[in-house]
């Protein structure tokens, strides 16, 4: 069942989040900058919002495209990926990184290594 997208606008230190249910594709996009001073003020409600939006439907795609990410945000995003996977093992995760950005690429490789069972695709742009 299609649903209007839920959009959390980006701020100075938190990413854009778009949740979408369309034509059988249930997707999460996280894009931009993630370095909030109060990490849990952003990520705790985000987890709730994600799973309330998708209800019992499986999330099929996740796209992570962060330009800057502090180390604590890294963990939260990883936690989100893992939680989504536990509910939807066939989820496809696309981890995007700029070709100039060794750290974000490395973070993607680390996540692949920590969770080899999750379908994580690294994509350079």
């Amino acid at each position: 069942m299609n649903k209007n997208p839920h959009i959390i606008e980006a701020t100075e230190d938190t990413p854009l989040v778009v949740l979408e249910k369309k034509d059988g594709v249930n997707s999460i996009l996280i894009q931009g900058v993630s370095m909030p001073e109060n990490l849990f003020d952003f990520y705790t409600p985000l987890f709730e919002t994600v799973f309330n939006f998708f209800e019992t439907d499986s999330i099929t795609n996740m796209e992570i495209n962060v330009e800057y990410m502090n180390s604590m945000s890294n963990k939260q995003i990883l936690k989100l990926i893992k939680t989504v996977y536990e509910k939807a093992p066939s989820v496809k995760v696309i981890w995007k990184y700029s070709k100039e950005d060794d750290l974000i690429k490395l973070k993607g490789q680390e996540i692949q290594s920590v969770f080899p069972e999750i379908n994580i695709l690294l994509t350079e742009y």
């Binding site: 990490l39 502090n70 604590m72 963990k75 990883l78 936690k79 893992k82 680390e110 920590v114």
Partner: peptide, 18 residues
């Protein structure tokens, strides 16, 4: 780094590793 990442109960510690 990998060990720190795997432990999702631990919030900090990754910054200096990075």
């Amino acid at each position: 780094s990998k060990n720190n990442l795997q432990d999702l109960t631990q919030q900090g510690g990754l910054g200096l590793i990075d």
